[in-house]
């Protein structure tokens, strides 16, 4: 109970910081992916398409009888597509693109917010520097897992629906390895969230324990 109270207090104290970092993380991740694409393909994007996401969601809701089916379809709806069109063949073929997908932005926003909460709590934590580094590394691993599985770079890999591993394949991971990893996407993402959540709760628990046992704090003073 004390742990939850500490957690609540930390969130109240840091909510502006979390909000700002959540938005920044989601946006900067898009920029990072775009830069990765440009570096990988040594070319600038030459087309942008903006989709009417709200209308698309409305159509999906109206035409999908099962509520359970709606979520995964809405989950894949795009807002912006920015990429490189190759006009050497036919009327042009999209060689690569970055897809800005609102559902993924939301996930990344939460990651950014959780990350900033984690880091704020680690900063205030009174543990030894070795332990502090471990906490930071664990936070980093959790963030990396979620970010990686929410990458929305796409390479128009013909006839197969692009998935998060297309981004890995494009960046040099072998096809076989990518395909082997594909099914692990939700597990990896879930593991990332579990790590971050565990980290936050763990830090809150330590703070609660230290508040009860001030000698513990003095021991490190």
């Amino acid at each position: 109970m004390k742990t939850l109270s500490v957690l609540g207090s930390e969130i109240r104290k840091n909510w502006r910081f979390m909000l700002l970092n959540g938005v920044l993380f989601a946006l900067l991740f898009q920029v990072a992916m775009l830069i990765a694409l440009m570096v990988r393909f040594q070319a600038f994007p030459n087309y942008t398409t903006i989709y009417n996401w709200a209308e698309a969601v409305s159509v999906i809701i109206q035409s999908t009888p099962s509520i359970r089916d709606m979520a995964p379809i809405i989950w894949e709806e795009w807002l912006i597509e920015i990429g490189r069109m190759n006009y050497d063949y036919g009327t042009g073929i999209s060689e690569w693109s970055l897809n800005v997908i609102p559902s993924r932005l939301l996930v990344l926003f939460f990651v950014g917010a959780m990350l900033s909460l984690c880091l704020a709590m680690v900063r205030r934590d009174t543990c030894q520097s070795g332990m502090s580094n471990t906490l930071r590394a664990t936070t980093g691993v959790g963030t990396l897992l979620i970010a990686m599985t929410n990458a929305t770079m796409s390479w128009v890999v013909c006839c197969a629906t692009p998935t998060w591993v297309v981004g890995l394949a494009m960046l040099g991971v072998g096809v076989s390895s990518s395909l082997a990893l594909e099914q692990l996407g939700p597990v990896l993402s879930g593991a990332g969230f579990v790590l971050l959540t565990a980290m936050i709760i763990g830090l809150a628990w330590r703070r609660a324990r230290n508040d009860r046992d001030p000698e513990g704090v003095l021991a490190h003073a």
Binding site: N86, D88, Y89, I93, E95, W96, W155, V156, V157, C158, V166, A169, M170, G174, V175, S176, S178
Partner: peptide, 9 residues
């Protein structure tokens, strides 16, 4: 070695 490449690439 199997590589994943779109037709244009």
């Amino acid at each position: 070695g199997l590589k994943n490449q779109s037709p244009a690439v």
